[in-house]
């Protein structure tokens, strides 16, 4: 990535996960932050991605099928009784 050029909005929206995972080089992270701070569209978009991630975190994990759980616990007892 070139340091002499500002990021476009189309680039910013592709970098959000890299930014959140701290995978951008320091200079790129700075340019990202600067763009988001001054661009209403990207600031809204960034907030929406964060809100999306937070909301996804509220989705419940699947339950373990009861039959599988029972089989696993039975196996556990069996292995520990020998």
């Amino acid at each position: 990535m070139r340091l002499d050029r500002e990021l476009t909005c189309a680039e910013v929206v592709e970098l959000i996960t890299s930014y959140l995972d701290r995978r951008l080089r320091a200079a790129d992270a700075e340019r990202f932050e600067e763009h988001v701070a001054f661009c209403d569209g990207c600031s809204t978009y960034f907030e929406q991605m964060r809100a999306t991630i937070a909301a996804t975190g509220h989705v419940r994990n699947d339950d373990v099928p009861a039959e599988l759980r029972d089989r696993l616990l039975a196996t556990f007892r069996e292995l520990n009784s020998t």
Partner: peptide, 15 residues
């Protein structure tokens, strides 16, 4: 301004 928003996202109401 190529690559800049033409149709930016609208903030979400009622978080």
């Amino acid at each position: 301004f190529p690559g800049h928003w033409a149709a930016p996202p609208r903030p979400w109401e009622g978080g």
